[in-house]
Design a protein around this nucleic acid. Sequence first.
DNA 1: CGCTAATCGAGACGGTACGTCTGGTCTTCTA
DNA 2: TAGAAGACCAGACGTACCGTCTCGATTAGCG
Lengths: 205, 205, 205, 205
Amino acid sequence: MSENENAAASRKGRPRSSTADDAILGATRALLAERGWATLTVGDVAVRAGVAKTTLYRRWASKNELVTAAVADMLGTLELPEDGDLRSDLDSVVRQFAQLLARPEMSSALMGLIADSTRDPELRRRVREAIVEPQKRLVVEGRARARARGEVGVADAIDVDLVFDVIAGTVVHHMLVSAEPAAEEWVGRFVAFVTAGLVGCAPGG
Amino acid sequence: MSENENAAASRKGRPRSSTADDAILGATRALLAERGWATLTVGDVAVRAGVAKTTLYRRWASKNELVTAAVADMLGTLELPEDGDLRSDLDSVVRQFAQLLARPEMSSALMGLIADSTRDPELRRRVREAIVEPQKRLVVEGRARARARGEVGVADAIDVDLVFDVIAGTVVHHMLVSAEPAAEEWVGRFVAFVTAGLVGCAPGG
Amino acid sequence: MSENENAAASRKGRPRSSTADDAILGATRALLAERGWATLTVGDVAVRAGVAKTTLYRRWASKNELVTAAVADMLGTLELPEDGDLRSDLDSVVRQFAQLLARPEMSSALMGLIADSTRDPELRRRVREAIVEPQKRLVVEGRARARARGEVGVADAIDVDLVFDVIAGTVVHHMLVSAEPAAEEWVGRFVAFVTAGLVGCAPGG
Amino acid sequence: MSENENAAASRKGRPRSSTADDAILGATRALLAERGWATLTVGDVAVRAGVAKTTLYRRWASKNELVTAAVADMLGTLELPEDGDLRSDLDSVVRQFAQLLARPEMSSALMGLIADSTRDPELRRRVREAIVEPQKRLVVEGRARARARGEVGVADAIDVDLVFDVIAGTVVHHMLVSAEPAAEEWVGRFVAFVTAGLVGCAPGG
DNA sequence: CGCTAATCGAGACGGTACGTCTGGTCTTCTA
DNA sequence: TAGAAGACCAGACGTACCGTCTCGATTAGCG
């Protein structure tokens, strides 16, 4: 029913070009990587995509929405390693986070979106939904696996939100504020720290 | 010699008005609080400060430099509590950090600066020098006190840079990305986690 | 071919608003009359015309070009009287010239353009093409009529360029440098002088 | 006595540097020649003269006054030739006018001053007094000589103001608007025309 | 096959902020 | 007190983007 209605609604007139969508998001990513958030221009994106500004604004109402879409589109499905333990899961999550932030089109865009979102609740909702939450599921999944492995004490100690804030926040701060790469050795130290924190907080720890 | 020359050089002509400096930084803070980073305008700051744009640009060459100065100026020297222990020191630092970030003129400005600094090494240097490093001394001082109190094992486990990234990053992420207030109870949980991490990493832990 | 291409090229996109042209030139004339050349501001013209600055700059690249267009637009095609003789033709031309210069939007603008054109050959070309030459045709036409009336000797004595310089230059100098109105009586004396000069220069004079 | 009084008056404080006056006027002329009226800057004049802006403004209250002074200062005492007749006097006057206008620092400045003077009666008074009138005396003197030579009829026909407007206006228009040099041959034609006009207007002509 | 309606590229439009420049004044120190 | 130096206010400059709009030209499905 609803399908028919939608179909009926969209059946009239010239359908939107799906290649335009891809071209726009691709151009956005390319320009984010080349020039960063601040100097990214909607007009430039349109030119780079070979598309009229109208076509772009018909799809995304603002630079913020456009960048959110482009970045979200870029996030592949992250995975936990098979047959891991608490520590290797942690290690994997930190590494994957760091890899995301290491992309030039990610770091600049992400901080820009967060900056704007401090004044725009709707944008904050979008950013969390499209970018932040998908990563948080790794922590949830990690806890479920720990529980399944019988590491009940530690698993119960995992406050998903807190652990996520610690992991994401620390990696971001390390890479963007302290401006240091997430080297092998640093990841090891950080994971050790988090592991100790989790174990220390466990009831039976 | 060079000092004398500089002094002589800067003694010529009408000296810069120090009241203008204060008025400009004050206006910047006020507008950051009212409207946030994105909509902050150099021209508006000048008008609000009752100052010509030239006067402003003579001191700070860009919006970024201006905001950096205003934010740095806002960060009074934070203090560790007297007669504390490791846990109360941590608790105090987290609380003070959270209070700073709760100011509307801080959150928006800070993320904006970090976003821009991902593409501007000179800005990153400024931000670290004027904003980040002064707070880091709290961690250094905390370690020194722990050592003085004889908590040698734990003190040696404190990697200043890592601990700072964990504290600052987590608080920022919690408040600005997760957008949750740093409630009494949350601070407790976070401090417990960090303490456990430190103890767990200590050689004799 | 090239014509077709040009036509095709200019057919693309939203066409320029012709009402904007009129509004801009009208506002320019009004502000020239009210405040003169020196205090005329491109921004004020745009505001007065109810038009964005970009719209104005898209058409005229500078204050000089804008004023040239406005002044040229103001110069309706002057006419020689029907059934006149040499003297009445001269009288009419001088009077019409003086009337144009008496308009406050003309005097200030014209001298400003000439001043700038002393340093800007391109502007000089524009001014001559749009403002000076159209009036010169009156002298050419006057000579043709004299010849047609059989005043061959006098007609042959008319050096168009010289006569034009004398008429235009003298009227301008009288009104703008000597700052005297072109009174009835003055026009009479000047026309008598020019007539005598022409007759005196004629071969059979 | 009077010297003593003056000395007493000027004995207070540091006396004004007379070299500064020369340096300023010289710099003004140089910059007028190099860049013209429109792009002449008071600040640049001060720099070129090696003088503070204060020093400049203490002497001349505005760019207009400064340029008027610089141009007036440049006009040497013009002279009529000895033992001439009406025609050679005219020839001389036209030539001297043309030479003045041929200087790049004159043409641009003069038109600029006239443009501004259309809106500023005080400036117009200054310009006439310092620049225009001194030249007009040549016509007065020429008439006196003609009368002394017994050319009474022609001399009485000379309306000084009209003749001056014709000469000055035509030469200016020829050189600055028509943008032609005042060639030998052109001067001859123009002088012939004026002479014919004068003779034709004379009572006994 | 023509009609209707939404889409497309192109580019003009009204606004707003930018960072620079100039005019003319004011304030400090030095001579 | 004048002078050199240079900071100060005020405001115009010409440019760059924003997000909207108006064109003519496509490009579908529906009758």
